[in-house]
Design a binder for these strands. Structure first.
Length: 398
DNA sequence: ACCCGGCGGATGATAACTAC
DNA sequence: GTAGTTATCATCCGCCGGGT
């Protein structure tokens, strides 16, 4: 190099652009990846060069420019992440074909965390570094008490996205923490992020969801769940509109459509159960919801929703009615008018059964509670299916 | 190319607030 | 005290554009 009086730049440019076979062979070897080697620097020679360039003690002024070189690569990685996220079938919900079963499956945000983490590892890593790196107070506390912090904090290097701590594998914390932070029974995530008042995993999940929803409105899993949650929590339409514009949730109108859809599905399930021949019972329940004061000057009127809720509950372990029972059943029709108080008077036998049922109910609740503490969910054997067959509005005047 | 999901805006009602 | 403006709500409608 000195003998020929060429600059390093000229030499490097020639090395990586020449067509001379003896040189290209060596350069290809230099650019190759050798997975059997132990360290990255021996696996991939450019990594060795890059790490030498990153020596801030030797070339402090160059560091700024070397980092800037990585920015276009970061953009490419972000675009790849984004493409994967918006084209994933797991993250899109089609309202028209949504069923209650689908919706129940969706209400497990832990699954979403795993899906998005896999689809967008780079973006997740960047946001993780952004949100979980210790702030001034935590750094101070760490030096004072030597509190163990999650790994990967405080090293925002380009390779940091791979080595952050595994996600807390707790079932409902993301959902619970979002729905009712005070009532959440176990803050499982807080042991992974000591000192944090919010679960960073949920924040990152929501961030990526918002970004993807802004780019492609069909990537709507989390916005749909959150929209439903906001709506049924009584959030005002202005707030929902604002959150919808920010990409947090779908519009109020879309939540209305979702409600229509799952109501249709609920009715379908109820009809299915009734038509199946299984023994069932129904519960009717009136609900009266105050909406707003609609008139005060002439009359005192309120707008209310007055609806009747109907639950159809199947009883699995009861013998089905047969045709032979039909005559007996039909003979009962109209007999209620002749009923007397003594017909429904509890007998000692009833008292005994109610007592046993009560004990059994307590036992079931205790078992369900224990189950929910260990497995994170209650699986009930009863088939409760609900529908809202009729709802109507009228103005009540008092 | 076409379907339809989702969005923005309209609608129609009244209470509450504000400027004059 | 009056007139005008703003806020609020559920629901309806037309249209854009993503996805098949």
């Amino acid at each position: 190099m000195i003998f020929l009086s060429v600059s390093t730049r000229q030499l490097m440019h020639w090395l990586f652009t020449t067509e001379i076979p003896a040189v290209t062979k060596r350069i290809s070897h230099f650019m190759g990846f050798f997975s059997t080697e132990s360290t990255l620097e021996t696996q991939f020679a450019p990594a060795l060069i890059f790490n030498l360039w990153r020596d801030g003690n030797r070339w402090p002024k160059a560091q700024k420019h070397i980092r800037e070189m990585a920015i276009p690569c970061a953009h490419e990685l972000a675009l790849q992440d984004s493409d994967r996220v918006i084209s994933s079938p797991h993250l899109r919900v089609r309202l028209k074909s949504l069923t209650i079963r689908d919706l129940r499956d969706l209400l497990h945000p832990t699954k979403l965390v795993e899906i998005i983490k896999e689809l967008a590892p780079f973006t997740w890593g960047i946001l993780h570094t952004f949100s979980t790196s210790p702030n001034k107070a935590r750094k101070q506390r760490k030096t004072d008490e030597d509190v163990p912090m999650p790994p990967s904090l405080g090293q925002p290097s380009a390779g940091a996205e791979e080595d952050w701590a595994d996600d807390p594998n707790d079932d409902e914390n993301v959902e619970e923490g979002e729905a009712s932070p005070e009532a959440a029974p176990n803050h499982g995530w807080s042991k992974d992020y000591p000192g944090f008042s919010r679960n960073p995993v949920f924040v990152i999940l929501l961030t990526i969801s918002m970004l993807a929803f802004a780019r492609n409105r069909a990537t709507n899993v989390l916005p749909l769940i959150l929209g439903l949650f906001f709506k049924i929590s009584g959030t005002s339409s202005r707030v929902v509109t604002m959150l919808s514009n920010a990409g947090v949730c779908v519009s109020s109108r879309t939540v209305e459509r979702l409600k229509v859809r799952i109501t249709e599905d609920a009715i379908r399930l109820a009809v299915e159960l009734i038509a199946s021949g299984q023994v069932f019972f129904t519960i009717f329940d009136n609900i009266n919801i105050f909406l707003r004061k609609s008139q005060q000057r002439i009359s005192n009127s309120n707008d209310m929703i007055n609806a009747t809720n109907c639950a159809v509950v199947g009883i699995p372990d009861v013998e089905q009615f047969t045709e032979a029972d039909l005559a007996e059943q039909l003979a009962l029709r109209g007999q209620r008018a002749k009923a007397k108080a003594t017909d429904i008077l509890p007998t000692p036998e009833d008292d005994r059964i109610v007592g046993k049922s009560f004990v059994a109910l307590i036992a079931f609740l205790a078992a369900a509670f224990a189950c929910s503490r260990s497995a994170g969910s209650i699986t009930s054997e009863s088939f409760i299916r609900r529908g809202t067959p009729a709802s109507y509005r009228y103005k009540s005047t008092r």
